[in-house]
Write a protein that binds this DNA or RNA. Structure first.
Lengths: 346, 346
DNA sequence: TTTAGCACTCTGCACGGGAGACTGCCAGAA
DNA sequence: TTCTGGCAGTCTCCCGTGCAGAGTGCTAAA
């Protein structure tokens, strides 16, 4: 990997200035601008030499001969790893966020939707939020509802008051009374466990309880299916914000991107594969495996519930984004989300 | 209102040809094209005279002096009311739709999501689907789950296996056993009623059951709140399709439109106000009250559950759309949605 | 009432030239 | 050795021009 020592201090300052200026203005940055705005002690000629070096080593590029410089993906990466400093969100923003979370419903999905909405708003980009894995969530309550035609509805109340439902077909019609009794029994035995743990536990119900056992098997099976289909839900908001960015005036790229976001399945895969070594993970431009994201960056972090990491919150936008600002705001929303989920209790 | 007799038969045929050709090609239609493609018996000069009349009466317009004609909103309205004939969806499309609905989950929200997805796909526009009013839906099952800190979770299973939840604060902690007993009682008394009917029924529980009554009041209240906030959910899909239409290369309009769709609240209002006199309602261009839709058309119809109209399905797209085709496809999806919901039983 | 012909208008596109921005390089200064 | 001023070169962007093409409206004749 890159070492910060690869660039001397002056080159670092110049790279930082180019990234900062370009992310703000969207205009390629020339040596004169740099000299005037950032390096009063140096002449533009000196800066030109440094810029040429930075182009040579792949941190900057030139759209055309007589244009200023813009960062390459590598340049952004260096900036993000070694030069960037998060810009704490201003009080007004913090206040808005707090207000929004205060009015969120006391329930997992509502909170995540709120998180997506707020994050899109304060970053002016597209927000992404993954819902937790169902199989890892503890079961709070099980209910069985009799439907006509020999089938029943299984209702699972999970941590965060998340509700999952599934229809099971039974061999014979079972009355609501019997189902309620069964549900009461299941509640006594299974409360507080996760669906994953359920699989192990299933033998302990005894062989004589054929019907219960079958229902339980269906239940576990359905939860696993949910998982296997890669059905991780990815909430998103703020697509409209994409249109504001000049990099998307060409509509072709945008279409691919919108499709990726609307369909969600591929995104879910990407978000789950992210290795969270640091608190905030940033994926820049061509570092993305997906072609639709080749000119985009992702800024991602996680949120927690009951002290365990449960899902991802983050932002997609053009590679030219104000990383320092966005990182701070993504972190803020992640924190508020975790707090809101903690207030749900268990 | 307009009478079909306002236009003689030849003008009708010309208007129809202009609308058809323009919706297909997107190119303003000139007199020569019309003569060559549609009116072999007439010269272009004759058609020019007719076109000039149609411009004079407001059915057509000219983008500029030396361009062909395009329909005005009024022209589209006339076309839709008197000239259009629905184009039955081809077997391949019908098959896709059927397959998608066959794989939909047995549950209201899943079916509506499927409807939105399919409709977006087969119309290549943005689909809209409203969820039913909660207050009108019959209650299948009520469950109460004890949470820590003197609160409980009310779970309502409604028609279509739609689940609604709400947290209530209690004066004192109540054990899960007591809550379950209470739930069993509520189930016996309230099953099969709608939330609206519940309000009337509340007195019959007797004054002695203070705690139950309070829970019930909260429950009704929460359902009403749901309603009052105009919280009608509007599902949508296919935003990416908008980018394909040449009318949206100018990104300004698009942004307003995307915002309208993503936020949903205003749309919900529009969709609920639609008076369904015919089976399919079409709103064209400036007939829309909302400024974001001034250059869009809506093609809307309803779906049913248990023989009652419960929600709206439809499409938003540019005014230049193939109305005949879209109407047939919206109808198809509406029908399939109603069928799928019927299979859920009650 | 329809048609042929014609002059007219407007768009779209290609071309060209000039202004502006920025560079790279070189020679001289620190 | 490092920095700087100067200068020629290059490329984009913008604007004006001119031309081809499409389509019209009008007029006069069939």
């Amino acid at each position: 990997m890159l070492e910060p020592t690869q660039l001397d201090e002056r080159k670092q300052r110049i790279l930082k200035a180019v990234v900062s200026d370009y992310t703000l203005t969207g205009i390629p940055v020339g040596s004169q601008v740099l000299a005037a705005k950032y390096f009063l002690a140096l002449s533009s000629a000196t800066i030109r030499n440094e810029l040429a070096d930075l182009v040579g080593t792949g941190y900057l590029q030139q759209p055309h001969t007589s244009a200023g410089r813009i960062p390459t993906d590598r340049g952004y990466r260096y900036f993000v790893d070694f030069l960037m400093q998060p810009e704490a969100a201003p009080p007004a923003i913090r206040r808005t966020v707090k207000q929004e979370f205060d009015t969120a419903p006391h329930q997992l999905e509502g909170i995540l939707e709120k998180a997506a909405m707020v994050l899109a708003q304060i970053t002016e980009n597209v927000s992404l939020v993954t819902a937790p894995q169902v199989s890892e969530a503890r079961i709070k309550h099980i209910d069985l509802v009799s439907l006509e035609a020999q089938s029943a509805l299984i209702i699972l109340v999970l941590e965060g008051n998340l509700i999952k439902q599934q229809i099971v077909n039974l061999e014979r019609a079972i009355s609501q009374e019997d189902l309620s009794r069964m549900a009461a029994m299941l509640n006594r035995k299974l409360r507080g466990q996760s669906a994953e743990e359920l699989s192990a536990r299933i033998g302990q119900l005894g062989t004589d309880r054929g019907e219960q056992r079958r229902i339980l098997e269906r239940l576990i099976e359905s939860i696993k299916n949910h998982q296997a289909q890669g059905q991780t839900v990815v909430l998103h908001d703020g697509m409209r914000n994409l249109l504001r960015h000049p990099e998307f005036v060409e509509v072709n790229r945008l279409e691919e991107l919108l499709e990726l976001i609307e369909q969600g399945a591929q995104l879910a895969g990407i978000l789950q594969q992210v290795a969270f070594e640091k608190d905030v993970e940033i994926i820049i431009g061509r570092e993305n495996t997906s072609s639709g994201l080749r000119e985009c960056s992702l800024v991602l972090t996680t949120y927690k519930m009951a002290d365990r990491v449960r899902g991802t919150v983050g932002v997609v936008g053009p590679t030219r984004m104000r990383y320092g600002q966005i990182v701070a705001r993504v972190r803020l929303v992640s924190q508020m989300t975790s707090d809101a989920l903690a207030n749900l209790g268990n």
